[in-house]
């Protein structure tokens, strides 16, 4: 290369970023890696344990149960939020004053802090004083999310759908708005019906934004903590104890730092793996 110079001072320029990343990601993570291979009884005394904690976590009934619950929960909310979000986006006006009104209404749930959402739904769904709880019980359906597992699940799912469908709506809406008019006009001239327009124009054009929506919703729901913690605290029993709630119980409730650290790394690797596989598959399809 002509005129290429080597200058070690360039390291100085990236030093702030290196420091930042080190302190907020690398060092905490390495601490967790450190814990996951050792046993401690306090007083900074550690014993090396190898893969013992990993084996323990991967074979434990408790982890299987909360992992299973997590998969079902994420599956259910994705199956509801993605189609519902697309449907709402399709129904929203593309222009005019109502478009802005709809956008603001849609953005509202996203602006509410997560613990507030949990608290809101907790009060809203209380069987004795909550509007929803009273109404459902008034219709003759036995509903009590603090005692009945089915009620607890329905409430948790409803809360997540209420909170996060908007995100899918906004992404899908942005995708829809980016489709040039000519596509709709050509489809009209080609005699395409509403379903054909959706199947061959709108859905393919939304593919990228929906990929992002699914990834975001997968990651967020897979790591959900605050809302179910405030709403049900993981109960009744352990029926709504998802992975992160379980993890906190192990780490802070029981202070089993080793197993908790191993569990969080397994947890992290699962999220990473699923996202990677999903993204690769979608993007490979795009290349074809």
């Amino acid at each position: 290369m002509i005129g290429k110079t080597t200058n070690q001072r360039a390291w100085l320029l990236v030093a702030p970023v290196v420091a930042l990343v080190a302190f907020n990601a690398l060092i905490p993570m390495m601490t967790v890696v450190n814990y996951s291979f050792q046993e401690t009884f306090g007083d900074n005394v550690f014993f090396f344990e190898g893969f013992k904690w990993y084996q323990q976590v991967l074979t434990s009934e408790r982890f299987h149960a909360s992992f299973g619950r997590q998969l079902v929960f994420t599956g259910v909310i994705l199956a509801i939020e993605i189609p519902l979000g697309v449907a709402i986006a399709l129904a929203m006006p593309r222009s005019g004053p109502w478009a802005s009104v709809c956008l603001v209404l849609m953005a509202l749930p996203l602006l509410i802090p997560w613990n507030v959402v949990g608290a809101m739904w907790n009060i809203f769904a209380l069987p004795d004083i909550g509007l929803l709880g009273r109404a459902v019980n008034g219709m003759g359906i036995a509903y009590n999310f603090t005692q009945d597992p089915v009620s607890a699940w329905v409430t948790t799912v409803a809360m997540d759908v209420w909170h996060w469908t908007s995100l899918v709506v906004l992404l899908a809406y942005a995708g829809l708005c980016a489709i040039p008019d000519a596509y709709y006009q050509a489809a009209k001239i080609d005699g395409a019906g509403a379903w054909a327009v959706f199947r061959h124009i709108e859905l393919p054009k939304m593919k990228r934004v929906l990929t992002i929506a699914i990834l975001l919703r997968f990651m967020d729901s897979f790591m959900i903590y605050t809302e179910p913690f405030v709403l049900t605290g993981g109960g009744p029993g352990n029926t709504t104890t998802f992975l992160s709630i379980d993890l906190v119980k192990a780490a802070l409730g029981q202070f089993d730092l080793g197993p908790a650290a191993a569990m969080s790394l397994i947890y992290f690797l699962i999220v990473l793996l699923v996202c990677y596989v999903f993204f690769t598959v979608v993007m490979r399809d795009e290349e074809k």
Partner: peptide
């Protein structure tokens, strides 16, 4: 409506159905 008038229109920017083959595009109408 456009479909009932039996007209065809070619737009400034090419409009094709991404999901389909060339054959599918031509067969679509």
């Amino acid at each position: 409506d456009p479909a009932d008038r039996h007209v065809a229109q070619v737009f400034q920017f090419p409009v094709i159905y991404d999901t389909m083959t060339v054959y599918g595009n031509l067969a679509f109408p």
